[in-house]
Structures are given as C-alpha cells and as structure tokens.
C-alpha cells in the first residue's frame, strides 16, 4: 500500500443519514459517508448490496428519498441548475462502458466539453488528445467504439469523463465486463489516475486494486455500510462476521 500524499481534509462529498427505496424495497439504509478531497475509496460487497446504487446517488442517476447528499458544497435536490453543476464536476465510468457508438472516439470525448462546458472545438480536441494519450490510445482517436476491444473502450470511457475535468470520479464496477487480460490495462489506468490526486469512489471486486491504492475500504451488505476501515486493517483484521465471510469467499478461490 502506498500512502496518499494528495489526501486533504477538505470534504468534497458528505452523505448524511441517506435512505433510498425502489418502490417498497428499502435499498439504502441510513448511509452516512464523508469523502475528503484526494481520497480514494473502494466499495465492495455482495451483489444486490446497494453499492452501485450508492455511487449512482452521488450524481443523481438515482434519486434518494431521505437524508442529504452534499457534493462540492452543493446539495443534491431536484433543482436542475445544481444538478448540472454537480454532474459536470463528477465523472462516472460504467460497467458497460456506455460509449456513444455512432460517434468516433474523439467525438465521444469532445461532445460534452463543447456543448456542456462551451469549450471551443479546437481546445476540446487538444484536451481530448492529451487525455487519450494519457490512457495510451491516441492512435484510436478516429475509430468507432465498436472497433475497439473492451479494455480499450473502458479506457476511452475514462478519458471521456476526464475531458470534463471533473473533481471527483465514480467507478461502477469498471472491470466486471472485461476479459481477464484486459482488466490489468484498465486498473493500471485507474492507478495512474489515483496518483494524480483525483478523488475516487470505486465499486469493484478487485481486492488487489483496493490494497494498492485505497485510503479506505467500505463493505456494504443489504443496503447498509457494515464496515469501513483502511485497507490494512480491513483485510487483516475484519471486525464484522459478514465482512469476514465475504472476504473468505472472494479471496480464497
């Protein structure tokens, strides 16, 4: 594990006693979580535990019904102005990449900067090329997503989010849809991103990644945060029985 030099004590995400229901089903129960600038948090837990729903609440792809979520000092409410401000500050990477198949890689990256941030076309193309270089696929800029491998597509998706110059990045199981040999290239990209000081919330089952970069690991089950600890203590001395069971299932196979 590396110590995080970029971590500060400025809070960028504050979640207070948040609840969410899907119709009558109580998916998130009394979630409270604070994230400081530069902090890297890994969220794990069995499927259906609400971890994806939790990070999707942070940019309001899902709407919570009770409690507060404050991102960058702006409270998430139905107000569209606030929402647009938050969404252009919070980038998100999805399990299924969700690249726009009718646009080239470069157009995927420049669409939102040009139309949402009103950046001149030339500047956004330069920025996009710079970020595509950072994820090591500048030579694919003029291809369409359908011509790339899964790992390449996911790296494009990361570059596309970074083109909006977000302060926070959310990753929703970014490697779950990838072949084993492609997982590494995406994780390496994420590790490099972490080294630049980006605030990251990552839902993943890649425990190696958690050990390597996380400042804090959260275990969720049945809509609750069961345990939160630094990776060393989390993996070596889990306190809760459910955490122990989960770790024994995913680490010893």
């Amino acid at each position: 594990m590396v110590t995080n030099k970029n971590k500060s004590s400025t809070p960028v995400i504050q979640i207070k006693e948040m609840h969410k229901w899907f119709a009558n089903f109580h998916v998130l129960k009394n979630i409270s979580l604070g994230v400081n600038q530069g902090e890297r948090i890994v969220i794990c837990g069995p499927s259906g535990s609400g971890k994806s729903t939790l990070i999707r609440c942070i940019n309001r792809l899902e709407v919570h019904q009770q409690g507060d979520i404050i991102v960058n000092n702006v409270e998430l409410t139905g107000d569209l102005k606030n929402l647009e401000a938050i969404r252009s500050d919070v980038g998100m990477v999805f399990q299924s990449f969700n690249l726009f198949p009718h646009l080239t890689v470069l157009e995927n990256c420049t669409l939102a900067p040009i139309w949402v941030k009103k950046l001149p076309k030339k500047d956004s193309e330069e920025l996009a090329m710079e970020l595509l270089t950072r994820v090591k696929i500048p030579e694919q800029a003029l291809k369409y997503p359908g011509q790339l491998s899964g790992g390449q597509q996911q790296r494009v998706a990361i570059a596309r989010s970074l083109c909006m110059q977000p302060k926070i990045m959310l990753f929703d199981e970014p490697t779950s849809a990838l072949d084993p040999e492609m997982i590494k290239e995406v994780l390496d990209t994420m590790i490099e991103l972490a080294e630049t000081g980006m605030t990251m919330l990552v839902v993943t089952h890649e425990m190696g990644f958690a050990k390597k970069v996380a400042d804090s690991v959260i275990f969720m089950d049945e809509g609750e945060i069961i345990e939160q600890n630094d990776p060393k203590n989390f993996f070596n001395n889990p306190k809760n029985d459910r955490t122990k069971l989960f770790l024994s299932q995913i680490l010893n196979h």
Partner: peptide, 27 residues
C-alpha cells in the same frame, strides 16, 4: 437505445435537448 446511453449523457451533464440531438435522435 440502451438505457446506459442516457445515463452516460446524464453523467456528462447534458440537458434534455443536447441528449435528444446528439444521442437519442442519431441512434
């Protein structure tokens, strides 16, 4: 059109008309 397309556009901060013009209608 898969739901993920709208989620990606939402996550990038695009509004309804931008989504319609650049994501929904072309596809």
């Amino acid at each position: 059109i898969p739901k993920g397309q709208y989620e990606a556009a939402d996550a990038l901060g695009m509004n309804y008309w931008q989504k319609t013009r650049f994501i929904t209608l072309p596809q």
